[in-house]
């Protein structure tokens, strides 16, 4: 037994890099086992994107009335959509920063157990992209859906032209990309920071 151990230790080995499929599997599992926590994080992303899409969808319906009022309304909507973007960015960043920070200790522990920095970053990359994508798709669709329904009930069915549909599609597509990207950005920086810390420092972090 002991000669066996000696033999194993004598040579300097390098840790193996686990394949992407293994990282994907662990990330999926990680979202699943902390389902409720993931749901709360995702709802932060979801609400941000839904708000942004709702405001932008409203802009797809032309305002009626005298020219001066239309210009004022359009200016107002532009401001509103910029504000919506800011709220959405802050909401997503806040949700993801919290979600990563509360896992610093876990990152430190995984490093003690032999995880490579790059593998930990990979895990958070996959997890944030999956979470961001699902939440952003749902957020865009639901934000769009409700505003459209309200306008339809207001009798604006004549505005449902090809331009409206095309605009909606573009908006939903862009917002999904935006939401996923913001989620990814807000996750990856703290994750890289935590992964590069010496394990002792990551384990000391208290939140």
């Amino acid at each position: 037994m002991s000669t066996n151990i000696n033999h194993k230790d004598r040579k300097i080995h390098r840790q193996i890099s686990l394949p992407f499929s293994k990282a994907f599997q662990i990330s999926m599992e990680s979202i699943r086992i902390r389902f409720w926590r993931s749901l709360i994080t995702a709802s932060g992303i979801f609400l941000g994107i839904a708000f942004f899409v709702a405001v932008r969808t409203g802009m797809l319906f032309p305002s009626a009335g005298p020219a001066s009022e239309v210009v004022a309304a359009e200016n107002r909507q532009l401001w509103l959509s910029i504000m919506a973007l800011v709220v959405c960015t802050v909401g997503i960043t806040n949700a993801m920063l919290m979600a990563v920070t509360e896992r610093y200790k876990e990152i430190g522990t995984m490093k003690c157990l032999g995880a490579l920095d790059s593998f930990i970053v990979k895990l958070f990359f996959i997890e944030s992209c999956l979470l961001g994508l699902i939440a952003s798709v749902l957020g865009s669709l639901i934000g769009w859906f409700f505003v459209t329904i309200i306008h339809l009930l207001g009798g604006e069915i004549s505005h449902m032209t090809a331009i409206f549909w095309l605009g909606s599609l573009k908006l939903i597509g862009l917002s999904t990309v935006l939401g996923t990207f913001l989620t990814f950005l807000a996750t990856i920086f703290p994750a890289i920071r935590a992964a590069q810390m010496p394990p002792a420092a990551a384990l000391r972090v208290e939140i």
């Binding site: 080995h13 390098r14 490093k111 003690c112 032999g114």
Partner: peptide
């Protein structure tokens, strides 16, 4: 003298860690 990968191998295979606060992953 060890680089990051060699250090990770060492932590994985040569040393086992036990902490005062257990440091188990709570969701697992």
């Amino acid at each position: 003298q060890l680089d990051a990968q060699e250090l990770a191998y060492l932590r994985c295979h040569t040393i086992g860690y036990i902490f005062q606060t257990f440091n188990l992953i709570p969701v697992m």
